[in-house]
């Protein structure tokens, strides 16, 4: 069950807000201090990518972010609503592609280096799932958090 869900308009200024919210909830959930920078950066990358995709395809649609505390892990899911024809490629039949496979085909948030944001996320979170679909992309990532009794999960 999601502990927090929020939606925001596809504006670059809101990405910082999403980062701050995610970091605050990660801290409260018991994610180790040493990992909070990684959470902040990875969530920012996912939201930046979504904002850029929406600005191209559907600027009026909001971006959704879910922050969950499940089974000793802090899980963040960023979902956009931007159609992506490029994602109908071999290897996506089950709706999932590996991060490596998807990185080059994603909308890049950096004109000079498309796909860099996804590559950064893959380098930061030890558990990442990129799920492209015809109606948008979902990026789910998680980090170890404290269990309900406060003992860090492994």
């Amino acid at each position: 069950m999601a502990t927090v869900e929020l939606t925001f308009s596809a504006l670059p200024a809101h990405v910082r807000t999403a980062r701050l919210v995610a970091t605050a909830i990660a801290r409260r959930t018991g994610v180790a201090e040493a990992l909070l920078d990684e959470v902040r950066l990875a969530v920012g990358e996912a939201c930046s990518r979504a904002v850029e995709a929406h600005r191209v395809h559907c600027p009026g649609e909001p971006i959704r972010i879910e922050l969950r505390d499940d089974s000793g892990r802090f899980e963040v899911t960023v979902t956009d609503s931007a159609p992506n024809d490029d994602l109908q490629s071999p290897g996506t039949a089950n709706g999932l592609v590996s991060v490596e496979a998807s990185a080059d085909s994603m909308f890049g948030i950096v004109p000079e280096m498309p796909g860099l944001g996804i590559a950064v996320i893959a380098g930061l979170a030890d558990d990442v799932e990129v799920s492209p679909g015809p109606t948008g992309v979902r990026i789910r990532m998680s980090w170890p958090a404290a269990t309900p009794n406060g003992v860090p999960a492994h």
Partner: peptide
């Protein structure tokens, strides 16, 4: 305080 891939892209663009 914070740098993401957008910033990296700007630096790479500047380098080019």
């Amino acid at each position: 305080d914070f740098l993401d891939s957008t910033g990296l892209g700007v630096l790479v663009g500047g380098l080019k």
